[in-house]
Design a protein around this nucleic acid. Structure first.
Lengths: 230, 230
DNA sequence: GAGCAATTTGTACATTCGTACAAACTAGAG
DNA sequence: CTCTAGTTTGTACGAATGTACAAATTGCTC
């Protein structure tokens, strides 16, 4: 069905090793020999399967992008059916954040590792990556902003986009430098605890978006754990 | 006074070119020959002045870190004298954000370019950089979180740290990928407009922090431009 | 088992990298 | 001018990189 035999092993372990190494050290810093060594394979096999280093990166994106976006669309669809605007907003935020942190059950799909890879690639600004990334995620982001907009009557498109930018930035940076959270909190918070990160990021972004609504008469529900009644 | 002659020119233009190139392409992707060419100097002069590529990076950090932190401390000190807690919080946020975006009058000091460099370095996770960055900014971040905490009675340290993490992430990502804002907003927002970025980032972070306060009875002042009275 | 296409291996190549160092140059002091 | 310390230049080196390709190996079909 694929046009190619379903011989997995080497090709797959090359991809897996590449994702891990790229996500950890960036694209430039990792050599094809590093990848081959990690996959217990030969350098030549990379050229054979993927043509070039850029081709390898392209394949990685091809493998992960669609499943991750699909998962986001699915969750977004569910969220949109919630009638209460605040609850819906919260669900929308989770639909955006959760797939970026947690792999969608199957081995491929999004997950923290691939998201970290994306973060590093966007920072490195690598020409190879620029062309590949393209706007693979723009469509999803647009749908996300649209969905958020419906929850926030009166909010301007500009501010919604800005805040979605900060959301993505917070997401990326948390995956890139989680130790900072642990360090700065004196160990009271764990930067690499995914559930904790998701909860905090969603809560912070909720408040950030919520303040844009005209209807700020009703008290915004606070979801963070340390919430106390005064 | 410096122990060295004040012969500027080459050494300085090497530093300037290096910052620009590193901030644009990352550390690994830029070769010493690229830097030399951009500074119209010779490769050997880099080794002479800075010993190594890592030494060059070290000098860049040495030049910028302290002035930038000093500026932040100064603004933070001013902010702390404001009695109204909401106003103070806003001023504290600006004290953190503004120096990262805007160079402090003199040619050296912080500024967007150096902050972008820091963003890329933190993403690349380069070993050379790891050692240099150290906790040069941790002290400032701690003071910042402390100051914010005073404005938000009842907020937990963990959440404050998490939100400061998202602030830094949003800051970094805005400098790394400003085009996304422009693109996603259909040109209605300009990602590389520093004043706009500062205003939005501060407003978003204000709301994010503000929601942590016990005293959310009084309506949080909304500062974004599109604010309308319903 | 033979034949064959797909894969894996090993090796070679041209480039580019950071660094080292000797030679040439520069400018101020005596 | 001459000397000298401080720069700048040019070049060379070993290591590492992405890529190319011929040879060896594998696994399947008949």
């Amino acid at each position: 069905m694929n046009g190619k035999r379903v011989r997995p092993s080497i090709r797959d372990s090359l991809l897996k090793s590449a994702v891990t190494l790229f996500a950890q050290n960036g694209y430039n810093a990792v050599s094809l020999r590093d990848i081959a060594k990690a996959a217990a394979a030969n350098v030549g096999s990379i050229t054979y399967h993927f043509g070039s280093k850029a081709g390898l990166l392209r394949e990685i994106y091809a493998r992960h992008t669609e499943p991750m976006n699909a998962r986001r669309r699915e969750l977004l669809g569910e969220a949109r059916r919630i009638s209460d605007l605040d609850e819906r907003l919260m669900a929308i935020l989770r639909a955006y954040v959760v797939p970026a942190f947690i792999s969608s059950s199957e081995s491929d799909g999004g997950g923290a590792e691939f998201t970290r890879l994306r973060a590093i690639m966007s920072a490195e600004g690598n020409p190879d990556a620029r062309a590949i990334i393209a706007d693979a995620f723009d469509e999803t982001s647009r749908a996300f902003v649209d969905a958020v907009a419906e929850c926030l009557p009166g909010a301007s498109r500009e501010s919604l986009v800005w805040r979605s930018q900060f959301l993505l930035g917070g997401l990326y940076y948390t995956l890139i430098n989680p130790e900072r959270v642990t360090r700065l909190s004196g160990g009271k918070a764990e930067g690499d605890n995914r559930e904790e990160a998701i909860r905090e990021l969603v809560a912070a972004t909720f408040a950030s978006f919520r303040s844009l609504s005209e209807a700020d008469a009703e008290p915004a529900p606070v979801v963070t754990k340390q919430r106390k009644r005064a």
